[in-house]
Each structure stands twice: as C-alpha cells, then as structure tokens.
Design a protein around this nucleic acid. Structure first.
Lengths: 194, 194
DNA sequence: CCATTCATATATCAGACCGATATATGAATA
DNA sequence: TATTCATATATCGGTCTGATATATGAATGG
C-alpha cells in the first residue's frame, strides 16, 4: 500500500490539500497506525493528478500562498476500492523505545527509568485523548480503530504500571558483557592471531 | 536509530552473521517491534567493519557458502552505549490492516470479515507464542518487551473478540460517498467549469 | 516593540531503507 | 525428479523520509 493509495483513501472521505493530508498522517487521525511525509505526499499527488485519479483546484488565500485542493475522481475511487479488495501486508513497527528497553541491562538506571516513564506517559496521553473523542456520527471503521488504539494503550499501560518496579529493580541478567571482559576477549584473540 | 546501531545492539549480546541478524529482525526476537532487511544490514555491517566498530571472521562450511561471523569491538560497544543514552524517537507504525479497516464502509462485507478474522488470528498466534516462551535466565529487558507484547496482543484481542459483531453488523456510516453520488458531483462541476 | 518560533502553504532532494533479485549450496516436499 | 524452502553471501532500482527552501501570518518571549 503505497502513498498514492493512502492519499486516495484520505480523499475518498473528502477533499484536502497536501498540507492537510500530511497533518492527518503525522499528527491526526491516522498517526497512530500509519505515517506519510511531505516528501512522499506531494510527488504522489502529482502522479495521481497526471493519471487522472484526482483533480485539483487552486484557492487563492489572503496573505498566504495559494492552496491546492485535491478531489478524488471516479477512476481514483475505483483504484482505491481495488486496493481495499487486496489482503493487507503484515504490520511494520519501529519502536526505538522497546528496542532500547530490550537492552535494559546496558542502560544507565536513571535513564532507563526516564525512558520507561516517558513511554508510560505517552500511553496515558493516548488513552486520555481517545477517551475524550466524541464518537457520535463517526463511521464504524473509525470507531473500530479508536477502540483498538484504546485497548492497546490501556493494555500496555496496565502492564507497565504493574511491572515498573519489577523491571527497574531487577538484577542485571546474563548474556551481556561489560567493557573489560570484552577487551580481554579481544586482546586474547589478537594474541592468537599473531 | 539507524541500522548500524541495531546491528551493534544485536552483536552486543553475541556474535552473529548477517543472515542471523536479519532473521532476528524479520522473524525472531525483535520482529514485533523493529525490522531490518538484507538491503540495509549488509551495507551497515560493511560500514561498521570499516569504522572498526565490529570485527569479522570467516568460517568455511561444508557444501555451503562461507559464513561471516561479526563481533562487536570495544569501540562499537561504546558507540552502542552512547546510542542508549539518547532519548528514543517516537514509535512509527505502519498497519495496512488498521488503515483498511478505517475504511470499513467502503470494503466488501465478506472481505472485511476475512481481514478482521485474520488480524485476530495473528494476535492469537502472538499470544500463544509469547506464552509458550520460557523466561528462565532471560534478561529483564527481554522479559519486559515480551510482557509488553503479550499485554498488547491480549488487550486488542479481547477488544476485537468483544466487538466483532458490532463492527461487522453496524450500518454504514456517514462521511463516505458511493460512486454514483461522486460522479454526479463531478459532472456538475464539469458543467460549471464550461 | 522586535526577534524568534510556530502555523499555514507549496515543494525538492540527498540519504536511508526495502524487497526483489542474483549466486551458491543442501534439505524438504510434492 | 522437480519445486520449494533453508542457509549463506550480496546488490540495486525504487520508495520514503526529513531537512531544507520559499512565502506568508500568528503567537510567544525578552
């Protein structure tokens, strides 16, 4: 599912500018489960315009650059519907926080606690945000992804709150090595190589 | 956190080949919260070798290509530790399933049910897999990310199981448009433009 | 009151990453 | 026996990102 399909999805709900589309993916309603940046959105819109999948009108603004409003075309809607008929690819997650915490034993205790607490706070913020949303007149698909997001953040938050001390106070485990042991290892290897 | 840092993280736990590193990210212990492919791993290892952050030994194998085993160096371990001292970037998630389900009203009912059920089954598989793991002798960081993953999948699975019928049977909402209404809209716009 | 930062707008481009592909083996499956 | 998968090494064209550029006004801080 490339960025052109993402843009068609957005436009299937209503006309929007490139700036607005980016905002939805980086800060708005899609931000929790998909991202797209200016670097891919504007080229995608240009190609969609070229292929006839979208149309574009320019709005002059007072004291601001002109605004380009994109609208999906029947051809574009058909292309989007075709994409919805496919089987989705596997989710792809990149969490620097979880990756770092996997190496908790190699982190400084204070920093580990900071990273942990910031992540918990982020989930708290997400829970509060989703709970404050009004679901009246909202499509079932949108309600579902909100509920999914709420269940996800509440679930991990509960786990984190209940395991904070267990993690931060646990003894450092096996399988990691400190600097001295590694240097000895490499020194010995260098001697053997000579 | 680029792929070189990811590789250093892996090698801080033990020596590994490029093939093994890729397996850990695409199928193994990191797959749920980070990915890296051959296309980025091999170039990253080459650069780490060049910069002295890793060392490499070649193992001949019977009837198979030679195996290159990479080991982290003291310099590399220092670089990884420096990375762990930083604040992590925001998580980035790309979920084609959630994006598609956001547009549930535009999906065919049978396909919507198929995608939903496949996603629920995936989470069930994750729950079973994590529950079957033996946590004895496992580092606290690793235990934490397992617990986090379990809480996440259990939480969303419970939500999905409890909301399946509500989603699949809900009436199609507002805010979307069918093909005919859109065509009318565009026809009218075209008339106005002439 | 002025400088800085943020928001609203349009874009581009160098660099990072991916997935398909290539090559070379053996093992498993139909 | 042919096909597919696993174990190994890589590369490269295509996609995407994030920083940057330009052009405005609004908000904030000194």
């Amino acid at each position: 599912m490339n960025v052109k399909t993402l843009c068609l999805g957005v436009l299937s709900l209503g006309d929007a500018s490139g700036y607005e589309i980016r905002k939805m993916f980086e800060e708005g309603r899609f931000a929790y489960f998909y991202q797209a940046s200016y670097g891919s959105i504007y080229p995608a819109l240009a190609e969609l315009l070229k292929s006839g999948d979208v149309t574009c009108t320019v709005q002059a603004q007072d004291g601001r650059p002109d605004k380009k409003i994109y609208a999906i075309s029947p051809m574009g809607l058909e292309a989007f519907r075709a994409a919805l008929k496919k089987n989705p690819e596997m989710d792809r997650v990149r969490s620097e926080t979880l990756f770092m915490m996997f190496f908790a034993d190699q982190m400084e205790d204070d920093h580990l606690a900071d990273v942990f607490d910031a992540y918990a706070e982020l989930h708290r913020t997400i829970v509060d945000k989703i709970k404050s949303l009004d679901n009246e007149g909202v499509s079932r698909g949108r309600r579902f992804v909100r509920g999914y997001g709420l269940a996800f953040s509440e679930g991990v938050l509960k786990y984190m709150d209940g395991n904070r001390e267990a993690l931060l106070s646990a003894p450092k485990g096996e399988g990691w090595r400190d600097m001295e042991a590694l240097r000895e290892c490499l020194d010995k290897q260098r001697e053997e190589d000579q």
